[in-house]
Design a protein around this nucleic acid. Sequence first.
DNA 1: ATTGATAATGATTTTTATTATCATTTAGTA
DNA 2: TACTAAATGATAATAAAAATCATTATCAAT
Lengths: 148, 148
Amino acid sequence: MDKINKKEFKNTFIKCIEEKGLRYTKQREVIVDAFFSAGRHITSEELFNIVKRIYPEIGYATVQRNLNLLCKCSLAEEIKIGKQKTRYEQKYGNTHHDHLVCLQCGRLIEVNDDKIEKLQAKLAKKNNFTPIKHKLEIYGICADCKSK
Amino acid sequence: MDKINKKEFKNTFIKCIEEKGLRYTKQREVIVDAFFSAGRHITSEELFNIVKRIYPEIGYATVQRNLNLLCKCSLAEEIKIGKQKTRYEQKYGNTHHDHLVCLQCGRLIEVNDDKIEKLQAKLAKKNNFTPIKHKLEIYGICADCKSK
DNA sequence: ATTGATAATGATTTTTATTATCATTTAGTA
DNA sequence: TACTAAATGATAATAAAAATCATTATCAAT
């Protein structure tokens, strides 16, 4: 199952690259592989360190550029929490979710609530505002940190 | 009414400063005055430009530092939207609200929905997460921009 | 009013994440 | 195989915010 998803993920990337008239390079393959296999909320620096082990000649700029490209292909999304470095989240299949952000350990927990989504739409409508996307973050202390 | 609020706002600042064993200076007075009287979502740069007219010797750093101090006193709150400069929002009386963010003109519209707040608390609880604060931003196109 | 301790200020530098630049290399095509 | 344009990697530029530090100002004690 992991393998299939990875293949789909990569194929989506390749398709997006072709649509834009861009080129699929060795570096891009290594980056998309590593990004898919890495944790869900990675920084460009972390990804750079992983990729470097597989492809030592790679430059930081290339990793950063390709994370931006993955975002443009809707395969990644920037998460900016406070003053932290931007993290890049995998976003295959477009399943929207919100985040619980642990203020102690920094962990991001993905959550979803249809009722909240609906109420948000309603709230926007009430203000004659056309919503395009939204961001909900709840900051607090996660279960793990509480039990410590 | 405006005057009274301003007075209250300033007194709260002075009280907070005293509690921390800090000093109420001329610069601080000018800054808190200007911050209160300015629009609700100001950047440090904008505030600096306003303050400079009243107190030309003032330095940027002083304005920045005192915006941070206002935040520590819970009289201001940082709003970070995308790659924009941090904006500082007045926060007197602690009335929490969320934002509709217009992607076209950049306007911030303050909104509030009790039902959403309650569902958020519920969502946190379900994850055994203790919420401390939260941030909800809905991005889209505002009424004004749509009618243009 | 004066003094002394210390906080605040203002000018400047540093930091840090991200983007831009540019010479060189590489990919894809004719 | 050669050509055109994109991609790369090294480095510089940007920009916002924080840190530094010498000087000034505040305030309590005298």
